[in-house]
């Protein structure tokens, strides 16, 4: 099942990127997708974690929310570049990740890193060490809003 979906995803990526739809080129695409799938099976990398698409449509709403957060955080960091004396308050603190499996923790930690102003420095068991640039960014992570949303989308899987 996973093998089949990997094949079709790879094929879709090939068709979208190539843009040349002659039988020869499409044949090459099918062939290389098959080889990649075979290698992936042989290397045994096709476990549950490598397949994110069963998280469902909640992932999309999460991405939209995350993008709005990124825009706000970019504005904060830009302010911080121009007025460092006023806004720059670096801090290092740890938060608990409430997700049960590794995939959820990785999504959470990467989301923290992706929003400028907070960077995941270390992830160990379920403790995430975060470096915050401003007090506002640090409070945003400490409030646990993002953690709750990630747990929400992981709960469906």
């Amino acid at each position: 099942m996973r093998t089949l979906s990997l094949f079709f995803i790879l094929l879709a990526v090939w068709l979208l990127l190539s843009g040349i739809y002659t039988p020869l080129i499409i044949g090459f695409g099918v062939l290389s997708c098959l080889i990649v799938v075979l290698i992936a099976r042989r290397m045994d990398v096709l476990d549950k974690e490598s397949f994110v698409f069963n998280l469902g449509p909640k992932l999309l709403t999460y991405w939209v929310w995350l993008f709005i957060e990124i825009v706000k955080a970019n504005y904060d960091v830009a302010k911080c570049v121009f007025f460092p004396r006023k806004y720059l308050r670096p801090s290092l603190f740890s938060v608990k990740a409430t997700q049960k499996d590794d995939l959820g923790k990785v999504i959470y930690a990467n989301s923290i890193t992706l929003t400028p102003g907070t960077v995941t420095v270390d992830l160990h068991e379920d403790t995430i060490l975060v470096h915050g640039l401003t007090t506002g960014a640090a409070e945003g992570v400490k409030s646990g809003d993002m953690d709750r949303r990630v747990s929400d989308i992981m709960g469906k899987a």
Binding site: N74, A78, C80, V81, P84, T115, P116, V121
Partner: peptide
């Protein structure tokens, strides 16, 4: 920001800006 911030960890935040919003 890469030039101005005082240490490595704060510079990482500045680098993150180009990676996210500017690219998008």
């Amino acid at each position: 920001g890469l030039l101005r911030f005082p240490d490595l960890y704060t510079r990482i935040h500045a680098g993150g800006m180009a990676d996210t919003l500017a690219t998008a």
